[in-house]
């Protein structure tokens, strides 16, 4: 019984915390740019605001596709979020769910006939092909190094110290993938606000947009917590310290992988982004995979 109450509590609280992290990220971005910035509850306020608005959709909307897309998007962010914070579940399943979230964005965009939305979907798809491979590589290397597939035991603290440097490869891959997966400025070509009016989300408004924004925040927090859980948890901390440690490290990660990257670079073109993801992270991934495979052969 107790476990159900925990899950329900987490199911309510974690999305709120995710929105809070989004607000913190916006505040940090503003400070980096020398502005005052919104209050850190701003994303939460935006969410409430979007819920109170009436929805206006184009007449020829494919509602089935829209709902499927939104559900996939939400599930692809919400379930991983609960999984990584509870440290329960399978890493492969998590990977599939997170790829499913991207699929949700594509379906949402395809529900409309707006050219912006179509362009956004096509760019999003190209980006997904480019970075999801690196993401899969990172998870596969992690599984090979640690030799286990569940989130409970699959982290740095469960392997001997000599193997730690090997986890550096997936960690770096994750740092490369994180901005693209979350969708922030240098590589959010599919959802560019100023160029194509948020791409796949151009036509949705009101509560549908609220779900999309919530999913994006949750995806960010889930990804950060996944990195923390897999690579930055050197000792097997549990209980309240696990939560405090996670939230602090998540904040630091958000700052370094999202805020700094976002402000240090401007949005690049789709061909540049695809070229980048298809060369640097992919090369690192393949080399890492080969190294790990050979090491395994030597009995490490």
């Amino acid at each position: 019984m107790n476990i159900y109450i925990t899950y329900i509590l987490l199911g309510v609280l974690l999305p709120l915390i995710a929105l809070l992290y989004d607000g913190i990220e916006r505040k940090m971005t503003a400070r980096i740019q020398g502005r005052v910035g919104p209050p850190i509850t701003q994303s939460w306020l935006d969410f409430i605001k979007l819920l109170t608005k009436k929805v206006k959709l184009p007449e020829d909307t494919n509602m089935l596709m829209l709902f499927t897309g939104l559900v996939l998007m939400f599930a692809g962010a919400f379930i991983p979020l609960i999984m990584v914070f509870m440290r329960k579940g399978d890493l492969i399943l998590l990977m599939y769910l997170m790829v499913g979230g991207t699929l949700g964005i594509l379906l949402t965009g395809l529900a409309f006939r707006s050219p912006y939305s179509r362009v956004g979907v096509s760019r999003e798809m190209q980006m997904a092909f480019a970075y999801e491979i690196s993401f899969i590589f990172a998870i596969v290397i992690t599984i090979m190094v640690t030799g286990c597939r569940t989130l409970e035991s699959c982290n740095v603290s469960s392997i001997p110290l000599v193997k730690w440097p090997l986890l550096l490869i997936p960690f770096i891959l994750f740092l490369f993938v994180a901005p693209a997966k979350v969708g922030v400025v240098p590589v959010d070509i599919g959802e560019a606000e100023s160029e194509i009016a948020e791409g796949p989300f151009v036509e949705i408004g009101g509560r549908y947009l609220a779900i999309a924004k919530l999913s994006k925040s949750m995806k960010m927090l889930a990804l950060m917590q996944l990195i923390t859980l897999l690579y930055l948890l050197p000792a097997d901390v549990t209980g309240i310290w696990y939560w405090i440690y996670s939230f602090v490290i998540d904040g630091v990660l958000v700052f370094f992988t999202i805020s700094v990257v976002r402000n240090a670079a401007s949005r690049i073109k789709i061909d540049q982004a695809v070229k980048f993801y298809a060369t640097v992270p992919l090369t690192i991934g393949i080399i890492g995979l080969v190294i790990v495979y050979l090491m395994r052969g030597w009995g490490m």
């Binding site: 209050p39 701003q42 939460w44 306020l45 935006d46 409430i48 605001k49 819920l51 109170t52």
Partner: peptide, 8 residues
């Protein structure tokens, strides 16, 4: 700060 939708 927490609940007013008009602040967005």
């Amino acid at each position: 700060l927490l609940f007013d939708p008009d602040n967005s």
